[in-house]
Design a protein around this nucleic acid. Structure first.
Length: 630
RNA sequence: GGCGGUGUAGCUCAGCUGGUUAGAGCAUACGGCUCAUAUCCGUAGUGUCCGGGGUUCAAGUCCCUGCACCGCCA
């Protein structure tokens, strides 16, 4: 019986360009698809774009385009990116596709007919600026948090999906199928969420408010909103309901998502499927976030790492390897260029690349550039051979439970064994002794056969590298995991090819962004709590007079909510009488001190001017006397 | 405010259902080799497993509590 495998990425929302998060999910999906293809599964890999909704309609307006034209443009960015990352998706779905629209409408009708969609009233605070409803608790002092306007109390009629009806079923299903949502932490999170009563899901928007969507089949005046549009792509993509592959692929569907969309995929989606009379998908596989240099990815801080930038700089395979090796699937990981370079140099250049280089070099030098015929084997040969045969089962076991980093670690353990074998067998010594000719051939064969296994097992992760390695070993065609179940698959007589270093070492320079200047004398970092210890207040100067006999000290009487005397060294920059009436910033909890005999109960804040001297920190408008500065 | 997560070697992190002297990779030091991309191999380490209580013959692993950081929701 033929085995099947179906993997999906989320369809990406077209209100922003692709970033590393998109790249990671899609690359993982690709590695899985390639892996299962090589394991003999009939595989289908789906990705695409989500194109309806407010945000897209808004973005289109500001780009002065029609929504469709805008969606076409951004969708193309995604579609064109994937081939550059060696993504082998079988289909690219768009929610504006005609067949998707048809599928959505048919499922909506089906659920409606089954009595699971009802018309109801939605009541709440509506902000015209945001074009959305707010809950009372979301408002700040009764106002919209974005616009500071008082929202209107509005009623809006909409369609709702009776999600609450399926809560008990879903809880039981998750309990009965422990790996339905995985890793376990996200299963627990879903169950925790389900401990509270589910509310019904609002699934429509009136066309008076939003027209960029799929019209409800049972009410022309509404479009469907988000869930019944986007999620259904997973069905459309494999030809629901009539498609030839739907019956075989859907039961093995593997959804791949980042943790931010756990709720729609883990809660809404199964209940929607249930209501539509469709069995649940097989697994929901949830991964974590990539943090950039330890802080959360942020567009405004310019830390969005563009996958293509790094691919171009360091090579695609190195990038793919890094993503899969560095992240423990399910957990957050840190991304930094430095870490990437580290991986490249140690894993790829030193361990793997150098192994390939030294092996081929010796084979060419000692065996005339063809794979030698092995002779009698020793224990050492047998040991490496058995490790080679054990590799695929081990990699596969980790792979099945999404521990890609462990799969790769196992491969690198094997690489390390091969390096160790070379050092122990010392082929360069055997080569000096003609009597050891046969032994030398055996050793070289063992090394090359290990490389062949390595090349094949790494194919899903680093396809270009693997193809090149296998080519140098004189192997062509699409590799399969069947080829590495048994030791000895490398054909003696194959012509070997040496070549450039596959992974040259790279030097990482901590380059400062061009044009970005950096502070070099930043003081030791403080926590917010430490900063909060300082009590800085707005003060109004009541009186000021120069301190006798001093050059620049001025004694100032201030009002900070109470009257105080402070002494400040700004006499060369300000005349005492000019200070009166000014509002300044003063630290009021600094330990009092005596300056030239005058007790100072606070310190004012001032900054150095261009060209020397000091200027007081002052306030725009009338800062309230005594107010905290923070 | 509610829910959840995280806190383990200099760094990045593994440690499943509690069980021998707590691990890996990187970085560091020393030694070996020379086929190789100054690469490879070997050896050496270092840890109040966030703090405090508790359960247990036995806890990094379970329970309570505190602290710090991070999410999600309201």
């Amino acid at each position: 019986m033929k085995k099947h495998f179906y993997v999906t990425t989320p369809i990406y929302y077209v209100n922003a360009s692709p970033h590393i998060g998109h790249a990671y999910t899609t690359i993982v999906a690709d590695v899985m698809a390639r892996f299962y293809r090589m394991a003999g599964y009939d595989t289908f890999f789906l990705t695409g774009t989500d194109e309806h909704g407010d945000k897209v309609a808004e973005a289109a307006v500001s780009a002065n385009e029609t929504p469709k034209a805008y969606a076409d443009r951004i969708s193309a960015q995604f579609r064109d990116l994937w081939p550059k990352l060696n993504i082998t998706n079988d289909y690219f779905i768009r929610t504006t596709d005609e067949n998707h629209v048809r599928t959505v409408r048919s499922i909506l009708q089906k659920v409606y007919d089954a009595g699971d969609i009802y018309f109801g009233e939605y009541e709440g605070f509506y902000c015209v600026g945001c074009e959305r409803f707010y809950r009372e608790s979301e408002l700040v002092e009764g106002r919209c948090p974005d616009h500071q306007t008082t929202p209107e109390h509005r009623k809006e009629s909409n369609y709702f999906f009776t999600m609450s009806r399926y809560q008990d079923w879903l809880v039981r299903y998750i309990l009965d199928n422990p790996d339905f949502i995985r890793p376990e932490r996200y299963r627990n999170e879903a169950l925790a969420f389900l401990r509270e009563p589910l509310e019904d899901l609002c699934i429509s928007r009136p066309k008076t408010r939003l027209t960029w969507g799929i019209t409800l089949p049972f009410d022309e005046k509404y479009v469907t909103y988000v869930w019944f549009d986007a999620l259904i792509n997973y069905l459309t993509g494999i030809g629901y309901p009539g498609g030839a592959d739907f019956g075989t692929l859907w039961p093995v569907a593997e959804h791949l998502i980042a943790k931010d969309i756990l709720k729609p995929h883990g809660i809404y989606w199964p209940t929607m499927l249930k209501a539509a009379g469709i069995e649940p998908y097989r697994h929901l596989n949830v991964h974590g976030y990539w943090n950039i240099d330890h802080s959360k990815m942020s567009k405004s801080r310019g830390t969005v790492v563009k996958p293509l930038d790094l691919k171009d700089k360091y090579g695609l395979d190195a990038f793919r390897h890094f993503l899969l090796r560095e992240m423990v699937f399910g957990l957050d990981s840190n991304f930094s260029e430095e870490a990437l370079v580290q991986r490249i140099n140690s894993d790829l250049a030193n361990d793997l690349g150098n192994l390939v280089s030294r092996s081929l070099s010796m084979a060419v030098k000692y065996c005339g550039g063809t794979v030698p015929v092995p002779g009698d084997v020793t224990d050492a040969d047998r040991e490496l051979a058995s490790k080679g045969e054990a590799l695929y089962p081990e990699v596969e076991a980790s792979f099945r439970s999404l521990m890609f980093h462990r799969s790769l670690a196992a491969v690198w353990e094997f690489i390390s064994h091969n390096n160790k074998y070379i050092v122990e067998q010392e082929p360069w010594l055997l080569a000096k002794d003609p009597a050891q000719r046969k032994r030398l051939d055996t050793v070289i064969y063992t090394i090359l056969e290990s490389l062949r296994i390595t090349g094949i097992i790494l194919s899903p992760f680093m396809p270009d590298f693997s193809r090149e390695l296998l080519r140098r070993l004189g192997i062509s065609g699409d590799p399969s995991f069947d080829d590495i179940q048994k030791w000895g698959g490398l054909t003696p007589g194959n012509h070997l090819a040496q070549g450039e270093a596959l992974f040259p070492r790279v030097v990482f320079e901590k380059e400062d962004e061009p044009g970005v200047r950096k502070l070099t004398d930043v003081k030791q970092e403080v926590t917010f709590e430490e900063f909060e210890k300082l009590d800085i207040r707005v003060a109004k100067v009541l009186e000021a007079e120069a301190v006798p006999k001093s050059k620049k000290l001025i004694k100032i009487k201030i009002d900070v909510g109470e009257e105080r005397i402070i002494v400040a060294g700004i006499g060369q920059d300000y005349a005492a009488h000019d200070l009166v009436g000014k509002r300044i910033a003063v630290i009021v909890n600094l330990k009092p001190t005596k300056i030239m005999g005058v007790a100072s109960h606070g310190m004012l804040l001032a900054a150095e001017k261009e060209g020397g001297g000091y200027t007081l920190i002052s306030f725009d408008g009338d800062a309230k006397v005594g107010a905290r500065v923070r």
